[in-house]
């Protein structure tokens, strides 16, 4: 084994580290800016579109945390299904503009800023107090961690009940969506009058 091999390995590792940092910073900035865009866009259609950017940058972060299957499921379930559903409903309802700061800065807006900042501070303080000293040591994981095979194994062994309950939840949601979305029967309208 030549002597310079470990140095090369170290150099490659640090280059990989820099690359991961760059990807992380880009994904984090995209995550936060698209999250703020979702909240502040006047046009709900743009809000739904920025949610796609939010979900995509989250998927990148999941990949960095070696959650390959969750990242894929995130893109398919959220960007592929949920956002499309939002866009369909927006198209159906006409997507009226709704300015977040309509009527100037009100007491409600100021209270919302304070409440959101309080939630953030509270969670950061609690996590720092409860787990601050354990956050630096991260477990070593193998390449199989987070792979579809391991997720499937966990779902069909330790978490079988959650897996089966999930199917019932989805069935109930589908039936409820059909009932809510179908036209109201005529007699309920007559009863209301």
């Amino acid at each position: 084994m030549p002597l310079e091999a470990p140095v090369e390995v170290m150099l490659a590792a640090s280059a990989g580290n820099v690359l991961v940092w760059v990807v992380w910073v880009v994904a984090a900035l995209a995550l936060l800016s698209s999250g703020i865009a979702v909240v502040l866009f006047t046009n709900p259609f743009y809000s739904a579109l920025s949610l796609i950017g939010n979900l995509a940058s989250l998927a990148v972060l999941y990949l960095l945390l070696s959650g390959e299957f969750v990242a894929g499921a995130q893109v398919i379930v959220y960007a592929g299904a949920i956002v499309i559903m939002f866009v369909f409903v927006l198209a159906y309802l006409g997507g009226r503009a709704d300015a977040p700061w309509a009527g100037g800065p009100t007491l409600q807006a100021a209270a919302a800023v304070v409440a959101a900042a309080a939630i953030a501070l509270e969670v950061i303080v609690v996590i720092a107090l409860a787990a601050g000293d354990q956050l630096s040591d991260t477990a070593e994981v193998t390449g199989a961690f987070g792979s579809p095979a391991e997720i499937g194994d966990l779902f069909l062994s330790d978490h079988l009940l959650a897996f089966e309950a999930t199917s019932i939840v989805l069935l109930v949601a589908a039936v409820g969506g059909v009932i809510l979305g179908s036209a109201m029967p005529q007699r309920s309208k007559a009863g209301a009058d």
């Binding site: 959650g67 969750v70 477990a139 961690f145 997720i151 966990l154």
Partner: peptide, 11 residues
């Protein structure tokens, strides 16, 4: 989940 090396968080 990544920190603890445990897949339950992903589930």
């Amino acid at each position: 989940s990544r920190q603890l090396g445990n897949g339950d968080g992903q589930i």
